[in-house]
Design a protein around this nucleic acid. Sequence first.
DNA 1: GCGCGCCTTTTTATCCTACAAATATCTTGC
DNA 2: GCAAGATATTTGTAGGATAAAAAGGCGCGC
Lengths: 259, 259
Amino acid sequence: MGYNGLHSSYNGPMAQNVDIGGVIVEQSHLGKNLTYSMLDALGRAIVTGEFAGKSFPTEAELAQTYAVSRSVTREAVKMLTTKGLLSARPRQGTIIQPEAGWNLFDPDVLRWLLERKFSINLLRHFNELRVSIEPAAAELAARKATPEGLAMIEAGYQRMVAAEAGQDDPLDADIAFHVAVLCAAGNPFYAQFRDVVETALRTSIRFTNRFKGRTASLPAHRAVKLAIEARDSAGAYTAMSMILREVMLLIADAERQEG
Amino acid sequence: MGYNGLHSSYNGPMAQNVDIGGVIVEQSHLGKNLTYSMLDALGRAIVTGEFAGKSFPTEAELAQTYAVSRSVTREAVKMLTTKGLLSARPRQGTIIQPEAGWNLFDPDVLRWLLERKFSINLLRHFNELRVSIEPAAAELAARKATPEGLAMIEAGYQRMVAAEAGQDDPLDADIAFHVAVLCAAGNPFYAQFRDVVETALRTSIRFTNRFKGRTASLPAHRAVKLAIEARDSAGAYTAMSMILREVMLLIADAERQEG
DNA sequence: GCGCGCCTTTTTATCCTACAAATATCTTGC
DNA sequence: GCAAGATATTTGTAGGATAAAAAGGCGCGC
């Protein structure tokens, strides 16, 4: 195990602020400071099963392993506790919570899970959720989208058009469109999925591209946009369902090939 | 502002372990220690808008206000950061994040929001989500529930029957049923909603009971259970949709009454 | 007067040490 | 064999010292 080297001489670019769905939030705390570095390293270690079987180290041991102070260790552990990965009690020590308690809607946790050994099964589960969420969001958007919401969807769509012509990143454009629909629904609970969808799509890109050089279908997305603009809620629901059915078929194919 | 009195001489019963959906997870850290007490107090203060307009206090000021050490303050702030409520940078200080960044699927955050001034609007938004999630979960459960999953649904239903006869708590029974369906879907992302549904239903009980003395409809829930047991996925979807349509109507009524 | 870069100052970040409290485990007495 | 108590381990809490980041002001050069 030994020394994990969180103390890099130069940490590279710091946390950027990203504008998603019209709201600026801090993203990617990764190399921000020692606590966040340890959070990432320790979280990934837990998720990849590095402590399976073994009893989890004490605060003191963790601090020594990662070569940081106990304060930093305690803050990292507290954050992992909030994410559902750990719990701590005096004398019993810090222990890993059962996986069912992990907060899958936390982008960090989801990313660690998807990266640990690319799981097509997890990807299918995630898209089974999208199948119920995104058409419903499209339906709500058709009924209640504000001018700003419509503009955001239009902007996302235009990025996809640009990407088709090689003038924008296809993945970023696809994400922007789906996130725009989630936000345009005007319901904070649907908007909540923006980070999750962003993370999952971004992490699984290598996979989805491996099986087809496919770009997300422009006409299908156009149909969603048009239905929402026409305030056709049933049409928006159906059009979004089509897109996700495509995705599910792609995943089913892949499962047949790999599994 | 003054002294907030987190240091109670006796903290009462400590954190209980609760069995939800067959998984034991730690719940209700509330009075567990100073850090969790401060997390709750500070989180509630933020959500209720106690710092609206004002600039957020520094670590030192927070520590003094809540009469705790800087260590405790920093850990509480780190947890609130993980929940999306805060962010911190040197010199800039600790600042409240825009509400759109708050993690609504964190039971603490959701509870604070629902308690702050009971918002029928928030409750409607939440149930707009349930409308898309729960029927889909019922459909999945009908297709893929394990014997354990079916048993859990049966157990939940039997609790509802018992509650009808005054031998169990109606709310607990209702929650147990809906959580069982979410877990029986065999998809970790759907199972993820157990805490959220639990929290939202439990917090909104006072409201839902105010408008009708209604208990959750036993026949409607029975229909869901039977469809799942019969592996009738379409029937399960429809039956669960019925239940939620009822709930949405109830909320719409209330909105008309309250304004 | 104006802009650029240095400097000051505020605030979080990190490390440290000491002690308190909780609790699992062992020990002892019966 | 069992239960009450002693013990030891681990997290919880406190608080001081110093480092690093960064916003805002100051001053220098032009």
